[in-house]
């Protein structure tokens, strides 16, 4: 039984066949530096929560979504930012989210 737990920064791609996945990943930053503490939420287009991961110490995050459009929200102490992305099967969508 695998867990539903969120791995810091997202699950590694090392053992994942990306051709079967629709990956959304990226880095959260503040004032040009990676956010060391924060959370990234994946929401569907109606803003229904789908998943969340804590960022890695380098501000990284990763999701394995279904193909389609998604909203992504980054939360860090004292701020938040949101963006939209389209995921495609077999591809990795890379995001850079800057929180002011």
């Amino acid at each position: 039984m695998s867990s539903c737990g969120a791995v810091v920064g997202g699950v590694s791609l090392d053992l994942v066949d990306v051709s079967t996945q629709s990956v959304i990943q990226g880095v959260v930053s503040k004032a040009g530096a990676p956010a060391k503490v924060g959370y990234v939420r994946l929401l569907d287009t109606s803003d229904e929560f789908v998943a969340e991961v804590p960022v890695s110490p380098q501000g990284e995050f990763r999701f394995f979504a279904a193909p389609g459009k998604w909203n992504v929200v980054a939360l860090i102490p004292g701020g938040s930012a949101r963006t939209t992305v389209e995921a495609h099967l077999g591809k990795i969508a890379d995001l850079e989210i800057s929180v002011s």
Binding site: S2, V50, A51, F64
Partner: peptide, 13 residues
């Protein structure tokens, strides 16, 4: 049934 696991995990089949 469109996803088999939460989206922070690889989708197992």
């Amino acid at each position: 049934g469109r996803l088999l696991a939460p989206a922070h995990l690889p989708q197992e089949a």
